[in-house]
């Protein structure tokens, strides 16, 4: 039994712009079940951060409770991390972001953590457009507590014991669109070719970026009759568009048929080249996005790809006019100017 990963790596591992190999972005060996989709998502985070030349110590990982929320331990060992309480990751992320908006925030949550106990917090972090990547590792169940149906379980999906879920499901993608998310995507843990560019786009987006990642629970929700299994997902997946992330100051090299691609510029100078798998659909048009989502649901398809993006909305930091300098870099006197100032302030309200 191996508790530790050997320290040997491929001798010719490529190095990124920081002269780091992927191994600098790894975490501890996973204790999740073998084959859990969450581990693939961790691997995708490692790949995306490495490719983006993000300095590991400039990342803060925040999570709630669940197998999914445990997974930050298994990537970015050298980053900041906060494993909070069930469904409360958004408030920890908001507080940290207010204190230091210069870090890259990666929130990791589960469908239980976000769509059940944390639904309230989820809604508010979306509408505040907090600058972060919010990953929902969506397996349709409470993996950590042995596989009870979660709120994202589809109506009619069978649990391991054979019972059908009688309730309508919550689609976090639909909810996020409705309440003002500026970057909404869905992907599948088993498709890193799609997931990694989406993550890179989300990490480069200024504002709230949700990626709802279907992430099969091999132990409790990967059987016949489940709509979140590897097989079911593969059979019903429908790619809305193919995202090609174009880093700042580089030429667009991907080739798609002219007319079928849209270029979206991001704030940090990078851009997204979106090749549409569906000709009549534009991810800049929220109405069209909602429509596409509803249509695919009617057809029993799982729509993946970048579903909606809006790069014009100000993020939480800007809305709150929190200033350029991170609050945690300000001195005690600046942050708490003393009783005299307080009295003056209060006098102004009288």
């Amino acid at each position: 039994m191996s508790y530790q990963k050997p320290t040997f790596r491929h001798p010719q591992l490529p190095r990124n712009g920081l002269d780091l190999t992927r191994s600098s972005y790894e975490g501890l060996i996973s204790t999740l079940c073998a084959g859990c989709g969450h581990d693939s998502i961790s691997a995708a985070v490692i790949q995306a951060c490495w490719e983006l030349d993000i300095e590991p110590h400039r990342v803060a990982k925040v999570s709630g409770i669940g197998c999914s929320s445990k997974s930050p331990t298994y990537f970015l060992n050298k980053s900041h991390g906060f494993n909070s309480v069930h469904g409360r990751m958004p408030s920890v992320a908001t507080g940290a972001n207010v204190a230091n908006h210069e870090l890259t925030y990666i929130g990791v949550s589960g469908d239980g953590d976000s769509a059940s106990i944390g639904m309230g917090q989820f809604a508010h972090v979306v509408r505040r457009n907090l600058n972060m990547l919010y990953l929902v590792e969506n397996n349709g169940c409470y993996g950590l507590t042995k596989g009870q149906d979660s709120a994202t379980a589809d109506e009619g999906s069978k649990s391991k014991s054979g019972l059908e879920n009688p309730f309508e499901n919550i689609d976090l993608v639909g909810v996020a669109l409705e309440i003002g998310a500026t970057f909404v995507a869905r992907s599948f843990s088993g498709d890193k070719d799609q997931l990694v560019p989406l993550m890179k786009a989300a990490l480069s987006h200024r504002g709230f970026a949700l990626i709802d990642v279907i992430s099969p629970c091999v132990t409790f929700n990967n059987h016949h009759g489940s709509t979140k299994s590897y097989d079911y997902t593969r059979d019903h997946i429908h790619t809305g568009n193919i995202v090609d992330f174009v880093p700042a100051r580089s030429e667009i090299t991907a080739h798609y048929d002219a007319g079928d691609t849209t270029l979206v510029d991001l704030h940090d100078g990078s851009s997204l080249n979106l090749a549409k798998a569906q000709p009549d659909y534009d991810p800049g048009d929220k109405g069209a996005a909602v429509n596409a989502l509803l249509k695919s649901r009617e057809k029993g398809e799982i729509l993946t790809g970048l579903i909606y993006i809006d790069t014009t909305e100000p993020d939480f930091h800007e809305v709150m006019s929190l200033g350029a300098a991170p609050l945690n870099s300000l001195s005690q006197e600046t942050l708490c100017p003393g009783n005299e100032q307080l009295q003056k302030l209060n006098a102004g309200f009288r």
Binding site: H10, G35, C36, S40, R234
Partner: peptide, 15 residues
């Protein structure tokens, strides 16, 4: 094989 990628992700030497 169910193509879950677990082996790909864990392999220390990316084999």
């Amino acid at each position: 094989c169910i193509e879950c990628d677990a082996c790909v992700d864990i392999c220390p030497t990316n084999c």
